[in-house]
Design a protein around this nucleic acid. Structure first.
Length: 970
RNA sequence: CCGGAUGUGGUGAAAUUGGUAGACACGUCAGACUUAGGAUCUGAUGCCGUAAGGUGUGGGGGUUCGAGUCCCUCCAUCCGGACCA
């Protein structure tokens, strides 16, 4: 009987649907376990072999945990709002909901093909009103909350209002220093009109509306978050991005900066992932110092700077302010006014990209001076674009002997440099050391730098000219898009003030629109709908990460229409035990989800403040592209036409020949000409100067008709509507060999491999095991289908332990021998270890070894095979289920329990152990591990070879290593 | 420039706490069965050497009876952040 994987897999997939085999209940006697995949954005391109890698890993782990007796939550859904569907709508006029739906159906079909154990009853789609109702609801929780710095958590805005009514804002100063009102009493609060009160409250809300510089992408017609902008262009599409002031919604994630940092210590993320988040948050501590300004045009002004190195205060040789700094216009001297204006005009003319790309030193002196508060020294104030308006105070104190950029600036403009670090400064490079003893530093002379910072901060605070200050690089997260395909904000405007809709009005449905193009003045498409605008509803929509910041909670209680997730349910499922996905979400999704979880926790809606206990990053599967090399006619027009007439068919040369004659390092055009002239006389043109004109195009060829590197020439001729039907090939050793390169897997590079094709050819079980067999889940690697045969052979070999092609059923009820039991129990132990530590590649190997050994032993015993199948279930569920039933078991193997290994079969009792002498030469002794240490010594010391080596000397010591090796030291 | 990770055969990779490096598979070679083989099975396969033997985990150094594994240093590759004061 043959292994008919197609029939088997179809049959069991249907059976699992019929029996609801993967239904998970929220009530169980068993301990819970939550395994989560990062849900996909359903793109039109469908799945390629790279996508399921993480899904297969999580599927294996879920099934394993189920066998181990856990109630496992393992859901799947779709991150369905987002730009590509909207772009598609603009270009093709198809409603995003329609194209998204189609894409989801296709994804689902592809996923089902592979045999995943998702509980599809729990599927979520972020674009579903039943889902985004709760996204809007959570937004309202954020809108109606503020961050109480006293209690260090989010609280209801009512708490804040009550506090204002009794004591003004003394306990809760306004976080935004730019806001015109700074402090007020209870009476003043009560006297404010409604609009003023609302404006003030907006300064505190966790989700708030404000004006700010945003990353505006003209091509996409929308605002992008910082992490969606890469090197000055949009992450998606690579369009230029500029800064623009717009009314925007924000999340006050900066209030959570410290807790986001602290939380990293409690969760299992990879070092690099933690590092990325830490960098993104960018916490630094230092001081803000106020310098009095001496300027002919401005009196009583002072310049506030932020520094992490207050210990270098005596090394300040100049000050630098950002070109956008508010003081610039006030303090510029009459002499310098023209130069300053010119410089600012120059800076404005430069785009963000130019500023990033060419970092040349530029700047201008303002003509004003700042006064060092400790020694009264007058320090020139400069303007330069290397100081950023958005960070700190937009002004710095420059210490050229200790800071590279300051040093270069001083050098460039010939500003004298004060050395406060003695021999640590060589006059040629700045030295940012903290180990120096301070010199030229007034009262700090002789003080180690590490101690000086504290002393300076103390003095500053004492005299009121500065404060200790912690700064973060992270900005509040922009939370609105001028787009259609996203969640509408449950916000209504009245007289320029935003009000929350009541919860009973949710979901606020996304309306139909006639056109997906932007509304007036950079507003979203919703601004084109008269009824929407008449009701003064917010015309922005939420960004892609809104729905994905909490989806892991919805899976727990997906059909609840009373709450986003019942508290008792989230208490049961608790944190995601293991979360699997790519590294690309390091500073986006993973940070936002953590913040939302913390906010929901603060407000009492869930019982934990970190969503993911452990994160596993799956590697990317790259494409391994294949190339063919086409010889093009080249030379003067006459020659080209002649060649085209003589040789109308495209000519392709094999990679080896291309390598030999053409590839850049070793081009031999003359030899190549001679070679080609043999077959195609006159093809290559040699001009009067004797130069050979050779033109070769390197073309991507579909990897699906290249076997390894060898091109299937017939398939190639039929490719792309017979575009190359008449192709001629110059072969090497009778074959056409393709060139190769590792690139991103993409349709345009013809290097995608569709899982459907592989499942069709080898079966889902083979496909699953092969993806795991490729290597560790975390490692990125190019796809190579070559080895899949080996895994397929393994499953066929397994099958033959049960069925013989001729004899039919061969398994029997004989009693297993010790040798057979040993194979089984060794395998149980190894599979348990491998699977538990996510080493699925060695897991697959372990099965191969087991089946090889059982084949060698000719073991067809049910007693052994049955247990082996249970182990195999997570990896190859279909074939396990089939053979499990064949052995006469009535229930599903999914409900079996993972076998326990018996120690006596795993630790061997007798074996030949090597004896090392001085760790070098080895000889063999047969020992029984049950004997005592003294007996071992006696045997070792009476061993002939050892005696010879000892040569009458006493051994210094005998070392026992792990019951495995014994080392005699002479 | 800073930070993180990784370097093991022709290839993907094992080696879980420092203990016989290269498991398992691909590929290659040889053989068996076969009209045939892109089916199946058996054997060989790190490198040098006919062999005995030597040598070998990016290079150099160190700790240890013993190092792929630990420490120092250099090199290479990949990823991330880059004017953040």
């Amino acid at each position: 009987m043959e292994y008919k994987f197609r029939e088997i897999e179809k049959k069991w997939q249907q059976q699992w649907i019929n029996t609801n085999a993967y239904r998970v209940l929220n009530v169980s006697e068993k301990p819970k376990f939550y395994v989560l995949d990062m849900f996909p954005y359903p793109s039109g391109a469908g799945l390629h072999v790279g996508h399921p890698l993480g899904y297969i890993a999580s599927d294996i782990y879920s099934r394993f945990k189920r066998l181990k007796g856990f109630n496992v939550l393992h859901p799947m859904g779709y991150d369905a709002f987002g730009l590509p569907a909207e772009q598609y709508a603009i270009e093709h006029g198809v409603h995003p909901a329609v194209s998204t739906d189609q894409n989801i159906n296709n994804f689902r079909r592809q996923l089902d093909n592979i045999g995943f154990c998702y509980d599809w009853d729990r599927e979520v789609r972020t674009c579903d009103p039943g889902y985004y109702k709760w996204t809007q609801w959570i937004f309202l929780q954020l809108f109606n909350s503020f961050y109480n710095r006293k209690t260090n958590k989010a609280e209801k805005i009512d708490v804040l209002i009550a506090s204002f009514e009794t004591e003004g804002n003394a306990s809760h100063p306004i976080p935004n220093s730019q806001f015109p009102i700074t402090s007020f009493t209870a009476e003043e609060w009560k006297s404010f009109d409604e609009k003023t009160q609302q404006d003030i409250l907006m300064q505190y809300r966790l989700a708030y509306c404000g004006y700010g510089e945003v990353n505006w992408c003209e091509a996409l017609g929308t605002v992008l978050a910082n992490d969606e902008v890469v090197n000055g262009v949009s992450e998606r599409g690579g369009h230029p991005v500029v800064k623009k002031k717009l009314r925007q919604w924000y999340l006050r994630i900066t209030e959570y900066a410290d807790r986001l940092l602290e939380g990293l210590e409690r969760i299992e993320f990879s070092e690099s992932m933690k590092e990325m988040q830490t960098n993104w948050i960018g916490k630094s501590s230092g001081a803000e110092i106020e310098f009095k300004v001496k300027s002919e045009n401005a009196k009583d002004k002072s310049l506030r700077v932020y520094t992490t190195r207050p210990d270098t205060i005596f090394g300040v040789d100049f000050m630098v302010v950002a070109p956008e700094h508010e003081l610039v216009d006030l303090i510029k001297s009459n002499d310098q006014a023209t130069a300053v204006d010119e410089y600012i005009a120059y800076v404005k003319s430069r785009s963000e990209r130019e500023r990033q790309a060419e970092k040349k030193i530029s700047g201008v002196f303002t003509g004003a001076y700042a006064v060092n508060p400790f020694n009264g020294r007058e320090i020139p104030i400069w303007i330069s674009e290397y100081v950023l308006a958005g960070y700190g105070t937009g002004a710095i104190m420059a210490v050229p002997c200790g800071d590279e950029r300051d040093f270069k600036f001083a050098q460039h403009f010939n500003i004298p440099i004060t050395n406060i670090i003695g021999k640590h400064f060589n006059g040629e490079d700045a030295n940012a050391t903290k180990d120096a003893i301070l010199e030229n530093s007034g009262f700090l002379n002789g003080t180690p730098m590490r101690e000086a910072a504290e002393i300076v901060i103390g003095k500053l605070e004492e005299s009121g000219i500065g404060v200790r200050k912690v700064n973060y690089r992270m900005r509040d997260a922009a939370f609105s898009r001028q787009r259609y395909w996203g969640e509408p904000f449950p916000i209504q405007w009245k007289d320029g003030t935003a009000y929350a809709l009541s919860e009973t009005e949710l979901p606020l449905l996304l309306p139909e629109v006639d056109s997906y193009s932007p509304g007036p003045e950079g507003e979203g498409p919703l601004a084109n709908i008269p009824e929407w605008v008449a009701k003064e509803l917010e015309t922005n929509t939420m960004p892609g990460y809104a729905g994905s910041s909490w989806y892991f909670l919805r899976y727990m209680d997906p059909h609840n229409d009373k709450a986003f997730c019942d508290r008792s349910v989230s208490d049961y499922w608790n944190q995601v035990d293991i979360y699997i996905g790519g590294t690309e979400h390091a500073v986006g999704h993973l940070l936002y989800s953590r913040m939302w979880t913390k906010a929901l926790y603060d407000l009492g809606h869930i019982g934990y403040d970190e969503p993911f206990k452990k994160l596993v990053n799956q590697g990317m599967i790259q494409g391994s592209s294949r190339f063919v090399y086409r010889l093009n006619p080249e030379g003067d027009e006459e020659h080209v036409n002649k060649t085209k007439a003589n040789y109308p068919n495209p000519i392709f040369i094999s990679y080896g020949i291309y390598e030999k004659y053409i590839s850049q390092q070793k081009a031999h055009p003359h030899e190549f000409k001679a070679f080609i002239d043999n077959k195609y006389p006159g093809f290559i043109f040699t001009d009067k100067m004797g130069a050979d004109h050779i033109s070769i195009s390197k073309l991507h060829v579909d990897v699906n008709f290249v076997d390894g590197y060898e091109l299937d020439m017939d398939a190639f001729k039929k490719w792309r509507n017979h575009e190359f039907a008449g192709a001629e090939f110059i072969l090497e050793e009778g074959k056409y060999i393709c060139g190769s390169e590792v690139e991103k897997m993409s349709k345009t590079k013809y290097n995608t491999v569709n899982p459907d094709d592989l499942v069709d050819k080898y079966g889902a079980d083979t496909f699953r095991m092969y993806e795991m067999f490729l290597g560790p889940v975390e490692i990125s690697k190019p796809w190579d289908t070559k080895g899949i045969e080996g895994v397929h052979r393994f499953l066929k070999k397994l099958w033959r332990l049960f069925y013989d092609d001729l004899k039919g059923q061969v398994w029997n009820n004989d009693k297993a021998t010790d040798a057979e039991l040993k194979v089984l129990h060794k395998t149980i132990k190894k599979i348990e270890d491998d699977t538990e530590r996510f080493s699925f590649n060695t897991g697959v190997s372990t099965f191969m070894i087991a089946v090889n050994e059982l084949s060698d032993l000719k073991c067809n015993k049910k007693e052994i095979l049955e247990q082996l199948l249970i182990l195999l279930t997570p990896y190859a569920p279909h074939v396990s289920e089939e053979l499990w039933a064949a052995l006469g078991n009535s229930g599903s193997i999914l409900d079996a329990s993972f076998p326990k290994f018996e120690a006596k079969y795993v630790t061997e009792s007798t074996k030949d152990y090597p004896v090392a002498i001085n760790g070098k030469t080895r000889t063999e002794l047969t020992l029984d591990l049950s004997i005592t240490q003294a007996e071992v010594e006696a045997i070792v010391l009476n061993n002939e070879t050892v005696l010879k080596w000892l040569d009458g000397k006493q051994p210094k010591k005998i070392i026992y290593v792990k019951n495995k090796m014994i080392n005699v030291v002479i």
